[in-house]
Design a binder for these strands. Structure first.
Length: 450
RNA sequence: GGAGGAGUGGCAGAGCGGUUGAAUGCAACGGUCUUGAAAACCGUCGUGGGUUUACGCCCACCGUGGGUUCGAAUCCCACCUCCUCCGCCA
C-alpha cells in the first residue's frame, strides 16, 4: 500500500519507480482522483459542521423550553445532500485505495534494471561443484524406489509427491536441521503458526487482492450442495471443497511469510523489542496456476511443499542490514550441507510485488545442469506494514512509525532434498550419501541405498 | 451443534440520547524536590483525515455495516470476533 501523501509530494519520483515496474505514469490519475475526493470531503465536512452547530442550538432551545421546529426542519433538509456526498466520498475512497493496493512496491535504487530473470545479477558463488551433470532426482529417487509420483497422482493429481522410507526421513531431517540452525545459531524464535488464514492476512502481506489465482481457498459448503453424499459413485468425484461447515472462506498459506509477518499486524511494538525474528516450518500450498507446463517433471514445483521460513520485523533504519543478515542465514544452511550455490540480486523486472529488493539463492542441480532457486530473501520495508498497520514506537517518542518487514526462505525443503539427492548421488551404486550435517537427524545413517 | 456473556484510548475500566473525544487507574512524557534515584506533588498525554504560510479551525472514529433521531459510544437490526458452560472430537 502506498502513502498518498508521498505520491502528492513526490509524483515524479513515484512515476519513475512505477516505470521500473513496467507501468505507465500512475500519479496523474491518482492525484486527480485524490483531488476530487478531498474536494467532496471538504464540502461534506463543512456541512457536517453546520449540522452539528444547529443540533447543538436545538438542544439548547429545547432545554430552555423553546420551540425549535424551524431549526429541526432545516437540519432535516440537509440530510439528503449529506447522504449523497457521503456515498460519493466513500466511493472515491474505495476507488483510490483499490488503485493504491494494486500497485507494486517501490524498488531500491540499487536494484539493477532488467526485463526478466535473464538480467538478474550474480553477486557471489560458493562451493565446489563436484558433479556438473548427472541423473535427476526423479531417476535417482525412482531407482531407489523411495520417490513415487504415480501413487501421489492417483490420490491427488499432478504436482504431488509421495516419499517413503529414508527419503521421507531425510526430508524431515532437513526440516529439523534448518530449524535448529536458525533458532539455535541465528536467533530466530520458532513459531508454529496457523496454516489457514483469512483474507486480511493475505492482504497484509500483498498476496491479495491481486494474486488470488495463485492460492488455494477453502470454500464454505453451500447449503444443499456439495454434500458428502453427492459423491458420484461411478467416478467417485465430488464438487465439494471442504467439509468444514463451521469454517469458511479461509485460504491455505502459500508460505509461512503470511502468518509470521501478520504476527505484528495491528500492533504498536516498542522499538527495544526489535528486531523480532521468527522462523517456522510449515507446508506451503500453491495452485501454480500461472506455471502450467513449467517444471512438470519431478518435485521441483508442487502444489504442496515444506519450507522453513524466516521473517524479521525491524526498525526502518535496520532493515537493509537485516536483509544481508537474513540472506547470510539462508546461505549458512547450504554451506553446512556443502551444497554449491550462488546468490543473485533480482533485477527490476523479476522483483516481486511487495519487495523493494530481493536476493535469490540458487543451488546447483546436476540433474538440470544449472542453478535453481532454493531461497528468496526480500526486504519489503514498510509496504506490508502499511497494509497491516504494523507500527513501532521509539523510546520517549510520541509518534509511531511503520516497521519494516523482511522474509526469506531458510530454505525450501523439497528443493533442498532434490539438491542433496542430486549432489550426493553415488553413480557406483545408485545410492545417495547422507550429508554430514544431516547424519545426527538420520540415526547415523551414512547412505541411502537400494 | 446448543445456551449464555462481552467487544470503549498503549493497557485496565466507567459512561441518564444533547459541549462526552469520552470519568478514573496504570503506563508514558515534562517539571518541582533530591548528590543521584525512588516516593510524593504539579502539568501534559488517543487515532486518522481535511484546511491553513502559520497559531489554529473543522470532520470522523467507542468491533463492522445499516437504521431510528434535529442530535447516537448510549436506542433498533444484521454481521464479525472473543470468552464461558454443555455436547462432539484429534
Amino acid at each position: 500500500m502506498h502513502d498518498i501523501k508521498y505520491i502528492r509530494d513526490n509524483a515524479g519520483e513515484f512515476d519513475k519507480a512505477m516505470a521500473r515496474r513496467g507501468l505507465g505514469a500512475q500519479s496523474p490519475a491518482i492525484l486527480a482522483l485524490d483531488e476530487e475526493r478531498r474536494g467532496v470531503l471538504t464540502r461534506l465536512q463543512e456541512m457536517q459542521a453546520r449540522r452539528n452547530d444547529e443540533s447543538r442550538k436545538i438542544g439548547e432551545i429545547k432545554k430552555s423550553g423553546g420551540d425549535a421546529s424551524a431549526q429541526m426542519e432545516a437540519v432535516a433538509a440537509m440530510k439528503v445532500d449529506m447522504a449523497a456526498m457521503e456515498g460519493s466520498v466513500r466511493d472515491l475512497e474505495m476507488k483510490q485505495s483499490h488503485i493504491l493496493a494494486g500497485l507494486p512496491n517501490i524498488m531500491g535504487p540499487d536494484v539493477p534494471d532488467g526485463a526478466d530473470e535473464s538480467e538478474n545479477v550474480e553477486l557471489r558463488k560458493w562451493g565446489e561443484i563436484k558433479s556438473l551433470s548427472g541423473p535427476d532426482h526423479v531417476a535417482i529417487g525412482e531407482g531407489l524406489g523411495l520417490i513415487d509420483f504415480e501413487t501421489a497422482a492417483k490420490m491427488s493429481g499432478a504436482r504431488f509427491t509421495l516419499l517413503s522410507g529414508p527419503m521421507a526421513r531425510m526430508e524431515r531431517a532437513l526440516v529439523q536441521f534448518f530449524l535448529d540452525t536458525h533458532t539455535g545459531e541465528h536467533g530466530y524464535t520458532e513459531v508454529s503458526p496457523p496454516l489457514l488464514v483469512r483474507d486480511n492476512a493475505l492482504y497484509g502481506t500483498g498476496q491479495l487482492p491481486k494474486f488470488s489465482e495463485d492460492l488455494f481457498k477453502i470454500k464454505k459448503r453451500e447449503e444443499g450442495k456439495d454434500k458428502p453424499d453427492e459423491v458420484d459413485l461411478e467416478t467417485g468425484r465430488t464438487t465439494m471443497y471442504a467439509r468444514a461447515a463451521t469454517y469458511e472462506n479461509a485460504w491455505l498459506i502459500p508460505t509461512a511469510e503470511v502468518p509470521l509477518t501478520n504476527i505484528v499486524a495491528e500492533m504498536i511494538v516498542e522499538e527495544d523489542t526489535l528486531p523480532r525474528r521468527y522462523a517456522a516450518f510449515t507446508p506451503c500450498f500453491r495452485s501454480e496456476a500461472g506455471a502450467a507446463g513449467k517444471d512438470t517433471r519431478g518435485m521441483l514445483r508442487q502444489h504442496q511443499f515444506y519450507k522453513v521460513e524466516m521473517v524479521s520485523v525491524t526498525a526502518p533504519e535496520e532493515s537493509a542490514a537485516e536483509h544481508e543478515r537474513m540472506t547470510a542465514c539462508a546461505e549458512t544452511v547450504l554451506r553446512k550441507l556443502e551444497l554449491p550455490f550462488r546468490t543473485i540480486v533480482l533485477c527490476s523486472g523479476d522483483t516481486g510485488f511487495g519487495a523493494t529488493k530481493t536476493y535469490d539463492i540458487e543451488v546447483w542441480l546436476p540433474g538440470q545442469e544449472t542453478y535453481r532457486e532454493i531461497s528468496s530473501c526480500s526486504n519489503c520495508k514498510d509496504f506490508q506494514a502499511r497494509r497491516m498497520n504494523a507500527r513501532m514506537r521509539s523510546k520517549g517518542e510520541k509518534e509511531t512509525r511503520f516497521v519494516h518487514t523482511l522474509n526469506g526462505s531458510g530454505v525450501a525443503v523439497g528443493r533442498a532434498l532434490i539438491a542433496v539427492i542430486e549432489n550426493y548421488y553415488d553413480q557406483a551404486d545408485g545410492g545417495v550419501w547422507v550429508p554430514e550435517a544431516l547424519k545426527p537427524y538420520m540415526g547415523g545413517l551414512e547412505k541411502i541405498t537400494v
